[in-house]
Amino acid sequence: MNNWTPIEHLLEDALYGRLSPAEEALFDAHLDKHPHLAHDFAQMRATLDIMNQREMAAPNDQYFTDLTENVMRRGKTTASYGRAQILPISLAARVRIFLSPSNVAKMTAAAALLLVGFFIGRFSGTAEPDGQMTGYSSYGYSLDRHSSPISVDDTDMNLEDRVRSYLERSSFLLMLNGSPQLDHQALVTCGFDLDHQQQISRELLVQTRTLKSELNSISDPQGQAIGDLVSDIEAYLVSINELNDPGDIHSLRPLHNQMDEIFCQVKCNLDNMRR
């Protein structure tokens, strides 16, 4: 039994010496009845006393002056790449920018990319003996955001199918996030929705943990390679979750590009395994 329970709500205040006299009496009475708790409490206090000795030396004023200059310089450089809108832009100018030939080309490319992704996912499955297709739809998810493209009931699938399904869903997320041709404006135009991406990545993260533990128990090199990829994907998913602003999706590009290549190799291996 956890004997802390009756006084648990007082523990934090007790450790930081903020109990009222009445609370202190109650707390002490409980510790008197349970000497092992008194021992634990004394150890916690001693630990905090040691932690109080931590001293972090603040840098001098020169550091803070340099920090300001570095920030201003980096800010201006970043803004000059178009990631920040420091200057007020009129509506007419926004429309002109929005409809500029380069943007129209980017939007078309983005739409085409999404369509290609959709059709690959929808129709590229292999025919099973009973005539069923093992494409995106057969794994139980679709591109409709309201039905969530990632919610999959995979309890009845074997490990290989779950890995395949997981990789396909992750590549779907990568495809949405990562075309290097898309700038911030184009992402906005395509209706890029960071909240939705983060929801997808959170659901995938839950499956990542299960898959990782299962893949770790496989000793062959192929299983380990897939395990490594799943770890990479996990880092990517965590990074997506940490983003505060859709424009920051570009900061994930190096990770994304590196993963794209491995992705193709692993998916080819999976196909070979299946054959």
């Binding site: 920090l67 920030v71 980096r74 800010g75 803004a79 420091i86 505060n244 920051d248």
Partner: peptide, 16 residues
């Protein structure tokens, strides 16, 4: 130092 620079850069981008 790295964290502080990143934080202010983010702040710069969302300052408006």
């Amino acid at each position: 130092d790295d964290i502080a620079q990143d934080v202010f850069l983010k702040a710069f981008l969302s300052y408006d």
